[in-house]
Computed example of a mutant assay.
Amino acid sequence: MNIVTRNKVSRISISLPETLLDQFDNMVCERGFESRSQAMAEMINNQLADHQQEMGEKVMAGTINLVYDHSVPGLQSRLNHLQHIYIDEIISSLNINLVQMQTLQVVLVQGPARKLKMIADKMISCKGVLSGRLLMSTAIIPPIHPLSE
């Protein structure tokens, strides 16, 4: 028998200016949330992840999303080199060729939030990277291989 455990749900009440509530209801509808509660929970989870990211040492999982010009000499080599330097934090990466000599690279990462931010900053600041963003979650990835300590 498959037992699903659910978190206990608590009811809260908030007061909002009417115009803010109207904007919130429009967003709930446009994004397809089932309820205001679902939308609020998602927003609170995002804020908690941002807060924990700022705290620094909490282990988090996430992605570094880069769009870069792959015609820039040495850029792909520099990005690969960074992935090798931080092999403990970088789980995997995926490259997708885009138009106009651009590549989208999604790098799956896990580790202390402060270190993931530092890695992302090093990648994003490489000459030829057009845009980049680190997205983190409070959830973590199970160990891929149980290395002995």
Rank of each mutant, 00 (worst) to 15 (best):
L79I: 13
L20H: 06
E42Y: 04
Y68P: 00
I3H: 07
L82G: 13
E54Q: 07
M60V: 06
Q102K: 05
I90L: 08
I44E: 06
R114V: 08
E18R: 03
H51W: 07
H81I: 07
P146V: 09
A61D: 04
H84G: 09
K115I: 14
D88I: 08
R114E: 13
L16A: 15
V129G: 03
Q52T: 08
H81Q: 07
N97G: 15
V4Q: 12
F33I: 07
L94Y: 09
K122S: 10
I124H: 01
T103N: 03
T5L: 09
V72E: 09
T63I: 06
I96V: 13
S35Y: 09
N46C: 15
G74F: 05
M123C: 05
V106P: 00
L116R: 00
K127H: 13
E30W: 04
V4T: 13
M123Q: 01
I64E: 00
Q38T: 08
S35T: 08
L104V: 15
E42H: 04
A39W: 01
L79A: 10
A61F: 02
N7Y: 12
V28R: 00
L98F: 08
I12E: 06
Q47I: 10
A41V: 14
Q47G: 13
I85M: 11
P142W: 07
G111M: 01
K127I: 11
Q110G: 02
H84N: 08
L66M: 07
V99Y: 14
M55Y: 08
L20P: 02
H145F: 13
K127W: 09
I91R: 01
I90E: 02
P17A: 14
I140G: 11
L48A: 15
I3L: 09
E89N: 04
M136S: 06
V72H: 07
V67E: 07
I3R: 03
Y86M: 04
I12A: 13
D69K: 01
A61G: 05
L94F: 15
M118A: 13
I44N: 05
K127L: 15
N7V: 11
S77W: 08
N97Y: 12
N45E: 14
N46D: 10
Q38Y: 03
Y86S: 06
M40W: 02
R6D: 12
E57K: 03
F33R: 01
Q83S: 11
E42G: 05
V109L: 04
S92E: 12
M60Q: 03
L94V: 09
T63W: 00
T5S: 10
S77K: 08
Q76D: 12
G111F: 00
